[in-house]
Design a protein around this nucleic acid. Structure first.
Length: 288
DNA sequence: CACTTGACCTGTCCGC
DNA sequence: TGCGGACAGGTCAAGT
């Protein structure tokens, strides 16, 4: 789930709790969730948090970093030291956890014990991972090295996207926006929202987009991502912030998850199909 | 080279 | 109530 706005929200929430805190111990409950040696992170102090695309980076004072990808169902939940059991009763988005006090939950994969409290990495589907690697090697990491520009920087502009589309004339615009090597951080939700804002059907072939449409699309992508950040991300099922709270962006979505409901602009029913292998939402009347 | 498909996992929801 | 199948926000390897 977590796309760029959700990763950004998690970082904002975690920073105040983790910065300058020491990692005392790391408990690995699911081996596959951790890549690298946990001893390279324990006994170190957190110096800062940052984001690259959808991934979260926690820098440590021993020249190592945690590179984290939440994939679809990953959560980073922080419980400050001394939190009472009643406060720990939080809704994590699935029935097994809904009314259970439990941290760790059934889906906790890694536990970081810090001086300020405990950080739980939960991940129902086990697709997510945390890598521990030297800070200097993050840029060379096999995952990070392939990422395209950040969508909220000037590097992502109409000229850049135009050149990308020329090299991929026959695929769909949606497939391009989901490709992290083209632009890093956009996922299924914000792709559908940005294409609606730009009035472009998701399955349009790239060589049919006009310059005006490309320009509008770039600006709509930046707009929906900023709106997502403003509303602390989208919570459809599992996404939660560090305190287990839901984001608010789902209340502002115009097409994602709105199949058969009236379009907020023209009242025609929102359509759903499969484009680029993903559930895709659009308005046949508003988008061309 | 670029695109599509299936796999990775666990769970929910819907129809029968 | 049970069962089978489709589907779920991401990415990668393998196939075309």
């Amino acid at each position: 789930m977590p796309e760029l706005p959700e990763a950004e929200t998690v970082i904002k929430g975690l920073s105040k709790y983790l910065t300058n805190q020491r990692i005392k111990n790391i408990r690995v409950l699911n081996k596959k969730s951790l890549i690298g040696a946990s001893r390279q992170a324990s006994k170190s102090r957190v110096v800062g948090l940052r984001r690259r695309g959808k991934s979260i980076i926690i820098d440590l004072d021993n020249d190592h970093s945690l590179l984290i990808h939440l994939k679809m169902t990953g959560q980073l939940i922080f419980i400050p030291k001394g939190t009472s059991r009643s406060v720990r009763r939080i809704n994590l988005g699935h029935p097994t956890n809904d009314f259970v006090n439990s941290m760790p939950s059934n889906h906790t994969r890694i536990i970081f014990e810090l001086t300020s409290g405990t950080l739980y990495f939960n991940d129902l589907r086990k697709f997510g991972w945390i890598k521990i690697l030297p800070t200097k090697e993050i840029e060379k990491d096999s995952f990070v090295a392939k990422l395209g520009p950040e969508p909220l920087t000037k590097k992502f502009n109409p000229e850049y996207l135009t050149n990308i589309l020329k090299r991929r004339p026959k695929s769909s615009i949606k497939a391009v926006l989901l490709n992290q090597s083209v632009v890093a951080g956009i996922g299924n939700i914000y792709t559908d929202e940005a294409l609606f804002g730009a009035k472009i059907l998701p399955y349009r072939k790239n060589n049919t987009l006009k310059p005006k449409e490309i320009k509008k699309l770039v600006s709509e992508i930046k707009k929906v991502l900023k709106l997502g950040i403003k509303h602390s991300g989208t919570s459809i099922q599992n996404y939660r912030d560090v305190k287990g709270a839901q984001g608010k962006m789902q209340n502002y979505l115009k097409v994602y998850g709105q199949a058969n409901l009236p379009c907020k602009t023209c009242k025609q029913p929102i359509q759903k199909n499969k484009t680029a292998g993903r559930g895709t939402h659009f308005c046949l009347n508003c988008q061309k």
